[in-house]
């Protein structure tokens, strides 16, 4: 459903051009659980932003379900972003003055949905936080805040959840909980989950690991779908470059 072909992203700075992405091609199927790994500056976040329609590529083709979305105007991209994608960030990115249920309602607000409260409570229920609905972020632990953020991402029934270092600020046990939720969403609801991480044990939860360096994909390995990360059988396919 996601099809990237020869995607380039060039930033112009005072020091000259910076090629953040230098010809990236990637196909992601619906319901895939995929990790993107790489050092900082490798272009993984830029690729995430382009996939999530937060940024547009300088060159290349980006098709979503066969439709070219690389050259859409800002309003259309905003609307698609709200309906197709859910974002989860390392720093949770919750609005401080809103309660958990209000955070989750936020995406629905921009879709003019009427039964927002019920949908938001349902999403909170799914991440096991129904009893924390009226708490503010500063009354929640890090793991709980991240689960609120996940509820916010999945309340719109997205096709894709994009998680940028979602466990970066969490301890091991909480990280596993969060990855468990993602795994379940991918498996049971066929939601495509893309996780950017630099921790191998986090990547091990997924079925596919894409490694990047200097704006290009250097490896793309698939594993048979399994519940336990340990029992994986890597299928390495080197990108011809």
């Amino acid at each position: 459903m996601i099809h990237l072909e020869g995607i380039e992203k060039v930033y112009r700075t005072d020091a000259g051009e910076v090629r953040a992405l230098d010809g990236v091609s990637l196909d992601v199927r619906a319901g895939e659980f995929i990790a993107i790994m790489g050092a900082s500056g490798s272009g993984k976040s830029t690729m995430m932003n382009i996939i999530g329609l937060l940024d547009d590529p300088t060159a290349g083709i980006y098709e979503l379900d066969g439709a070219d979305v690389s050259k859409l105007d800002d309003d259309t991209r905003s609307r698609l972003r709200g309906r197709l994608f859910g974002f989860v960030f390392q720093s949770y990115n919750l609005v401080p003055r809103m309660t958990a249920v209000e955070q989750v309602e936020l995406p629905l607000l921009y879709q003019r949905r009427s039964n927002r409260r019920a949908m938001a409570l349902e999403a909170l229920e799914r991440v096991g936080l129904a009893d924390r609905a009226s708490h503010h972020p500063n009354q929640l632990s890090g793991g709980q805040q991240q689960r609120v953020a996940i509820a916010r991402s999945l309340v719109v029934h997205p096709n894709v959840i994009l998680a940028d270092e979602p466990t970066g600020a969490l301890d091991t046990r909480t990280s596993e909980e969060v990855m468990g939720i993602f795994e379940e969403l991918a498996r049971e609801q066929q939601i495509t989950v893309v996780v950017v991480t630099h921790e191998q044990n986090i990547a091990d939860f997924t079925n596919r690991t894409v490694r990047m360096r200097d704006g290009v994909i250097i490896s793309d390995e698939q594993r048979a779908r399994a519940t336990a990360p340990a029992s994986t059988t890597p299928v390495v396919s080197e990108v011809a470059r």
């Binding site: 937060l54 936020l106 879709q111």
Partner: peptide, 11 residues
């Protein structure tokens, strides 16, 4: 955050 969850510039 609002932009990420689907708010347009106009919103």
């Amino acid at each position: 955050i609002r932009r990420a969850v689907g708010a347009r510039g106009m919103d």
